[in-house]
Design a protein around this nucleic acid. Structure first.
Lengths: 329, 329
DNA sequence: CATTGGCATGTAATCGATTACACATTTCAT
DNA sequence: ATGAAATGTGTAATCGATTACATGCCAATG
């Protein structure tokens, strides 16, 4: 492996000059610069990033913490992040918490020790230890998906998105709507979306029944199972629509409905949230809400870059969404 | 930021002893060890990885190079890789070439300069400069998806998978099969799959016509467009089945067929490759081939770990696959 | 009792970069 | 002509860890 010293020797200068030439800092004669660059070309020399990072305290690496590596949402966000960061010469150090809150905290520390320049967290929950850890590591930090106090957060407007979706159902004539949510550990998905649903239903005179309210775990299977439970518990007085807080659960619900011979949307309307690629190609195509995840990733990366340049950035950002009306309603 | 020196001072030992305690190397008295560990706990000290890596030449980071961050195949593979590596305390440094061959090479060098311990490349093409670069960086290296000479490669058995799929179509009574492939830049997908198709068709008396052979670009849209072209060019004597080399293109083709009122599979059978989650939920569900991408990722990671431990590993590995028969045939 | 070897710890070199500071030379304004 | 400013280069310290080598102690061995 060639080092800066090798280059210096071959170019007959000190390594100081090589460093200056490479980083465009200080004065270097045109002559020396050319000589150095030529040798750099020839040898394919690349500065050792560990050494550089040790000295400068910057690594050109951004840590990204995901709840799950294999969901479309995560992938899209990472894609957006990467697009922006790669352009600026940053790399992504990826970690996957597998939805484990302990790991979330552990990884924040780990990334710090790995000298990342900043961290983007796709947050799924909010708790004091997490906030404390983020404060401790004292790095440019960005959260996506949950509103973390005193942390720059990009949040989806879950409340209004959910309210719009519910409203739409009601205005299409559905008053009896089943709901498939998730655990309240996840404030955005588990609480906000449900709250908006309940608020709108109440305001607009919809019918809410306890046994029409299911709780899944984000998976397609859980959507299927919850739908089954709801219909079995309902008997004759069944809901005429079902609102699942994620596309995957909505698609699970659709599967069960189709199996049981219900026609969608005539017998039962179905809606989800997320605009997954699945939602577009299932039959009938699923009405859903697009959260523009990729754009969220891009914006997060841009904000992080601004922070790295010591620009002041606001603390809260609300992301936009779009209702996509399709054939399932 | 606390360093090893801070710990040493507070524990009244030299940093050598702290290092030994932390790495379980050499002798450390039980007493000293306890004192050190206690302070480490209290301060939440984590060794600076840049310094460590500079000295030891190992970073605990594995570079992963993807052709595209946002495909299901990539995601599954990365997921498998991460599962295995995380367990061993490795992190993933992610790069996305956006299908650019230049970047592929650039990133290999970059990862080297970042001191990664090894590289896993999801390869999409094979060329001399690539091989040369891999040889140059001289790192534990693993390729997935293409057979790179003199590089440990995990390859999908594209030829036999494609042959099986074609055979299946023929034995279901389809002799007139359209084919939607991709550019020959990609040996595995662009050449092997087509070659197997042609070989089987010839052997089994299938009908191949030039205007039944399309070339897409992996996207759903391109599947749609190619299907349109093929049917328009065919007139009355149209194919009775279409084999697209990826699920996404198959789904695009299905979209067009459905739009035009063809019944699947009665009027036209459709098959793809990849076992995407889409394939399961489109209507009718798509017959496809599962390449077990996640397992491929796991195996790649395991092999890389073996290499890191200086174990000898073979150069070529053939991955298994599974034909999934669904309703589109 | 002298010697050997295990245990515990410390000193200082080292990894490969950046950078404060010093020094020499050239340029330029007054 | 002269001092100040600009230009070009080098010396050596530094970042935070690991590790070869040295040293001292103590118990066991013959």
């Amino acid at each position: 492996m060639t080092t800066i010293n090798d280059i210096a020797k071959r170019a007959n200068v000190s390594r100081t000059t090589v460093s200056r030439a490479l980083n465009n800092s200080g004065y270097v004669s045109e002559e020396a610069r050319k000589r150095i660059m030529k040798i750099v070309e020839e040898t394919g020399y690349m500065p050792n990033q560990s050494a550089k990072s040790l000295r400068t305290k910057r690594s050109g690496v951004i840590g990204v913490i995901l709840p799950r590596l294999s969901t479309e949402t995560s992938t899209r966000v990472v894609n957006g992040i990467n697009e922006v960061l790669a352009k600026e010469g940053f790399q992504i150090l990826l970690t996957d918490t597998e939805l484990d809150k302990k790991k979330e905290i552990e990884y924040i520390r780990l990334l710090k020790s790995r000298h990342v320049d900043g961290i983007i967290l796709l947050a799924t929950n909010v708790n004091d230890e997490l906030i404390q850890t983020i404060r401790d590591v004292d790095l440019p930090f960005l959260a996506i998906g949950q509103d973390l106090p005193e942390v720059t957060s990009l949040v989806y407007d879950d409340y209004h998105a959910s309210a719009d979706l519910t409203n739409m159902l009601i205005h299409k004539g559905h008053h009896k709507i089943a709901f498939i949510g998730v655990s309240r550990d996840d404030p955005s998905v588990g609480i906000m979306r449900e709250q908006a649903f309940r608020d709108v239903m109440e305001r607009e005179g919809g019918v809410i029944k306890d046994h029409w309210m299911g709780t899944g775990d984000f998976s397609i299977d859980s959507g299927y199972e919850e739908m089954k439970k709801i219909l079995r518990a309902s008997g004759k007085n069944r809901p005429r629509a079902v609102y699942a807080v994620t596309d995957r659960m909505a698609i699970g619900a659709m599967e069960y409905l189709k199996e049981q011979g219900y026609r969608i949307p005539e017998d039962m309307a179905v809606v989800g949230i997320g605009a997954s690629s699945l939602s577009q190609y299932v039959s009938p195509s699923l009405t859903t809400i697009d959260y523009f995840n990729k754009k969220a990733g891009q914006q997060a990366a841009e904000l992080l870059l601004a922070k790295l340049k010591n620009e002041k950035v606001e603390e809260k950002f609300e992301l936009t969404y779009r209702l996509i009306l399709r054939d399932s309603v």
